[in-house]
Design a protein around this nucleic acid. Structure first.
Lengths: 231, 231
DNA sequence: TTCACATTCAATAACTCTATTGAATATATT
DNA sequence: AATATATTCAATAGAGTTATTGAATGTGAA
């Protein structure tokens, strides 16, 4: 496998990393691990895989250098090895949005239909938060919210949003966010809110990118914001 | 293949892009195309593949959105679809350097042995070039140099360097560069020059990154810096 | 120690990717 | 039109990847 030629070794390493990103299930796993570290079990439940299968994917990514893991009692907790992994995913996404025919089409047909407006940048939200001009809405599941969220964010999971609309102020602008750029929760939330007459927009990207940008977050345990998901 | 679920479509698009980067030959092709557009034939010769095999790899990357192509007479010229492709490769490389066991080891054993010093940043070289304090040395093959190079750079291909040392000034600092971060030419050149008593350092990355940073270059035809390699 | 639980390992069948070969197509030149 | 050249297509065998299954390992609690 790994030859002596130093250049070849480096290229093989890169190819191994790229390969470890080249599977929809593994990309979905990365989206979840971007929120914080998770046990094999939790990952399997989130993504809808068998435990053994999830374990294999996680080990493969750890072997490539994309993930790291530590043992915590009976559990093994996996996490992104490095924030650079988010950069790699962002670059792939940009290429896809600009140059992949299928992706461009679905963005046009689905995403733009739900929220034609540009998302609010992190910088802009910081400014408006300081002046208390907006309400920040976290539409992820409650366990993920608990593990860490934007300052002053209110949590209403997307599935509960329709029947909890009275909790949402009608006169202030709502900024919704979710797991990140591949997550559809905030898109759906904004579409629903707008349809009901609220002033709603999306935050650019999601929670992991906010945290990676070094912006303040509110977390139960900021270092190891672990989530063990109910079965 | 591509389902209706919009999130799935996006993830499939990303996975396809990642897959198209997940092969050593394709990474090598990207390194060459980062210098400028090339015909199928030229790519095949550079990387040492059959024409049909090179064509297949190129088409696969074009299909994913990583490459674009145009016809020029009998030739089809391929190029990177977007500078973001360089960002994606840079992110992969950073992950590899920090977290891939094999890559870390070969960097320690081979690259650091040749040039333990930090490379000179583009910013620093720009500053020193303005004051005419350094000699810039392009150690790529002559045809690649002709297609575009750094301002005032002198071209001595690595293979000729040992017998053309008298052309290199001994009293000035030499800054060597080549194709980019995966290319070993500048490393070898710096090792050779240092060993012979020259003051030599590497430029960070290589020609494509310099150009992508918007810095000035000298080129035969700056827009389509094409190279048809001799057989 | 024994047990329950979380994770990993090993084997395997289905599937996908790769390089090779030779034929087919597209373009420019004669 | 015929020819030469560059590229692409199609078929295929060999190699690698994936999900599934059930067994094995490691950890903490009883």
């Amino acid at each position: 496998m790994s030859s002596d030629n130093p250049k070849r070794v480096v290229l093989e390493g890169l190819a191994e990393i790229a390969k470890s990103l080249a599977h929809t299930h593994r990309l979905e796993i990365l989206e979840h691990l971007a929120q914080g570290e998770r046990s094999v079990e939790a990952v399997a439940a989130c993504v809808g895989l068998s435990i053994a299968n999830a374990s294999q994917h996680l080990r493969l990514m750890r072997g490539a250098g994309v993930l790291a893991s530590r043992r915590d009692g009976k559990h093994v907790l996996y996490r992104l090895s490095d924030p650079t992994v988010l950069n790699a995913l962002a670059a792939l996404r940009k290429i896809a949005e600009l140059h992949s025919a299928q992706v461009r089409e679905v963005i046009e047909r689905y995403f733009r239909a739900r929220d034609a407006l540009e998302p609010v940048s992190r910088k802009e939200l910081t400014r408006r938060l300081k002046k208390d001009l907006v309400t920040v809405l976290d539409v992820r599941p409650t366990d993920e919210y608990s593990a860490g969220h934007l300052p002053k964010a209110v949590n209403i999971p997307l599935g509960e949003l329709a029947r909890r609309l009275r909790e949402v102020p009608k006169d202030r602008e709502i900024i919704a966010y979710c797991r990140g750029p591949f997550c559809v929760l905030a898109f759906e939330a904004v579409a629903l809110l707008r349809h009901r007459g609220f002033k709603a927009r999306r935050l650019e990207d999601g929670y992991p990118e906010w945290r990676a940008a070094g912006l303040p977050v509110t977390a139960a345990d900021p270092l190891h914001s672990r989530v063990d998901r109910a079965p």
